[in-house]
């Protein structure tokens, strides 16, 4: 039974963890390029060079002495995001939507006094949220106002879009929609749902929620499929460019769509997860193999790669 199941999965081209690690991450992602994707400040610097928009950063706090200067740096901005440069899984991120006399108001309504806020920054600097526990930098970044397109299938928070690119070809995409259970975070581990996106049309298909296939948002009850994702072609191009930017052949690209400014590259992931296959009900391996068989001229430019992907990868 097990062997038959494994055979069926192989035929469906589903990618397992071992093969992802051995053939794709170890095969295409040189260790030396990892710091570039692990540190959001570095990611932004290199993205700028390639004309890929990222949310503006207006302050980088490098040491505890700079904490007292935060208010001055903020000027008269009322809203912003505090995040660790090397954080993972969304930990340590605080969205501030207003500033009052008593302190900073977060998106969930919590009020941070100036002291409490300073502690949060100090935590980030000492590396509490960073991947390896090393010392870190804190970033003050512009707050993104999500495009209303996903409003009907989002519970609080900001939905984000994940595209997997292999050798610069976007092979699979999904949008991660926060739920009540995920506490407004677009994190599948915490209970957010992920809706697959048809690469060729940019429309959402079915979704994955806690490992199961679902068709409706658990909190709002609205269907998650058939939503046209705006700026889809542009986002595919941003994902395709990420290879030239980083030198990584197997990448997860996370994007946000701002109501006014359109898509921003949020962060890159050198070890993207495999749940995206359930969201799309398609195997990744089969698509990666297809990319490997593509004629060499496909890989010439980001445009040619996106064009080829949209022709090949229909749900």
């Amino acid at each position: 039974m097990m062997l038959r199941l494994a055979k069926k999965m192989r035929e469906a081209g589903i990618l397992g963890m071992n093969r992802r690690n051995a053939s794709y991450i170890m095969g295409w992602n040189p260790r030396s390029a990892f710091p570039l994707v692990d540190d959001k400040v570095l990611t932004r610097q290199v993205a700028e060079k390639y004309g890929v928009p990222t949310p503006p950063i207006f302050q980088i706090i490098e040491n505890h002495g700079q904490i007292s200067g935060i208010e001055a740096a903020l000027g008269d901005r009322r809203e912003f995001v505090l995040k660790p440069a090397r954080g993972s899984g969304g930990s340590g991120i605080i969205l501030i939507v207003d500033r009052r006399k008593e302190g900073f108001v977060s998106q969930s309504g919590e009020v941070y006094s100036r002291d409490e806020f300073a502690y949060q920054v100090s935590d980030i600097l000492s590396g509490i949220h960073s991947l390896g526990g090393q010392e870190d930098r804190a970033i003050l970044q512009a707050l993104v106002h999500p495009d209303p397109v996903f409003a009907a299938v989002t519970h609080q928070g900001v939905p984000d879009i994940r595209i997997i690119s292999y050798r610069g070809v976007p092979v699979m995409g999904m949008v991660r929609l926060p739920t009540r259970a995920s506490d407004g975070k677009a994190n599948l581990h915490r209970g957010a749902i992920g809706a697959g996106i048809d690469i060729s049309t940019g429309q959402t298909v079915t979704a994955v929620h806690r490992g199961e296939i679902v068709s409706h948002h658990p909190d709002t009850g609205n269907p998650v499929s058939g939503i046209p994702v705006p700026f889809w072609d542009k986002m595919l191009l941003m994902a395709a460019r990420a290879m030239e930017m980083t030198g990584l052949g197997y990448l997860g690209i996370d994007l946000l769509i701002d109501r006014e400014h359109g898509p921003f590259l949020l962060e890159l992931n050198a070890r993207p997860g495999l749940a995206i296959q359930i969201a799309n009900r398609r195997g990744l391996w089969q698509r990666l193999e297809k990319v490997d068989k593509a004629p060499p001229e496909v890989f010439a430019t980001p445009q040619s790669r996106v064009e080829w992907a949209q022709k090949e990868f229909k749900v």
Partner: peptide, 20 residues
Amino acid sequence: GQYSGYRLMELFRFRKLVGS
């Protein structure tokens, strides 16, 4: 170390994708 096939747990995780 060079086994690149599916893990047993993945057979359960992805079994919906092959319709069984």
